[in-house]
Design a binder for these strands. Structure first.
Lengths: 186, 186
DNA sequence: CCCAGCATGTAAGAGGTTACATGATTGC
DNA sequence: GCAATCATGTAACCTCTTACATGCTGGG
């Protein structure tokens, strides 16, 4: 259960409502931990019951009510516990790689459009990350910032990696003749 | 439901029993799509019911019975359908990045051991990938092999990337003084 | 007035994890 | 004889995704 801990870190960085967290999980934090708002609300409710977080209801005079969550001592203790426990290596799941291998059993060129789309996505993200880098991580950084920058750099590195790989894969696919179907054993 | 399609590709590459698939998902295919044997058996049963695959029971004279699955025409059709449908970009989930940001709320140096372990893991995998590369992807490759090699190259690229990032992150962590706890808002 | 955005949720179902269960063979 | 490996599964549980549901405010 690591979404819990991602939310705890996020709330330590800035106490927020579920809605705000959901939006942040579409951006900065979401670049390395994805979650939908339904998931977030459910986990927040669970963590409040466990007293890891505390809700401060801001009744909306004008806007709708907001429940602003802050991390309690119990929550910090739980985070420490989790931080100390070694991570079991997470199994990756990349459907594009499945498609690449699957391409051998049809016309590989059919994958070109998909790859081009991926390349464009990674190029966009890379541009976006570079803008954020220039804006948020220039000059001298305090420890918290430095750690965030290191995470950001992982993002940059991997978008760059994907981009280069997409180029390479596109070169390969484009060089392949429309092949005849490979033998089946059906 | 992409495990289904990963299994279809895997069975097209080589008709196999559930057990064999489970072992392959701990190795080559598993490098980009992880699955446990329980999951595999369940999906195989479902796909057999859908007639995407066909079981050929090899009664074991000596060894236990094996059910060898092959992909049917229906299975190939389903794979084609899935291959043609655009992939929605998958949300990444990397707990190590959560820990990096979480390190700001404790002593960052506590993460050093974890990072060193990750670095060693990636270094090992990289070595392993390079051995496989030299063994399986040398010389001229047929289309299927070329596609597999491209997937393999993604693996190499990302292990390399992680390795470099781990080094960088370790440099940062080691340069950080044991910090005092940051302020809380509990 | 309507639509976009703010803000919070419920419910059903698919997918994934962990623990349990069985039985045969091969090598020590 | 015992442990490891081969080989197949069931059951319970948790997590995640998708669809639905509600109501308010501000701008065109």
């Amino acid at each position: 259960m690591a979404l819990d801990h991602a939310l705890l870190v996020s709330l330590l960085e800035k106490p927020s409502s579920g809605y705000e967290l959901a939006r942040r999980f579409d951006r900065s934090i979401g670049y390395f931990w994805h979650a939908t708002h339904q998931q977030i609300y459910r986990v927040l409710a669970r963590m409040e019951a466990s007293q890891w977080i505390h809700a401060d209801v801001r009744a909306g005079e004008t806007a709708p009510d907001r429940k602003v969550f802050t991390v309690t001592k119990g929550g910090r203790a739980e985070l420490s516990r989790w931080m100390a426990e070694p991570l079991d290596p997470e199994g990756t799941r990349n459907a594009l790689m499945v498609k690449m291998r699957g391409a051998a059993f049809g016309d590989p060129r059919d994958l070109i459009a998909e790859l081009e789309h991926h390349r464009a996505t990674h190029a966009n993200r890379l541009t976006c990350y570079r803008i954020i880098e220039a804006r948020d991580f220039a000059g001298t950084l305090d420890p918290q910032r430095a750690l965030q920058y290191m995470v950001h750099k992982a993002g940059l590195r991997f978008e760059q990696g994907w981009l280069e790989w997409c180029e390479e894969a596109l070169d390969l696919l484009r060089s392949m003749k429309p092949v005849t179907q490979r033998r089946t054993t059906s």
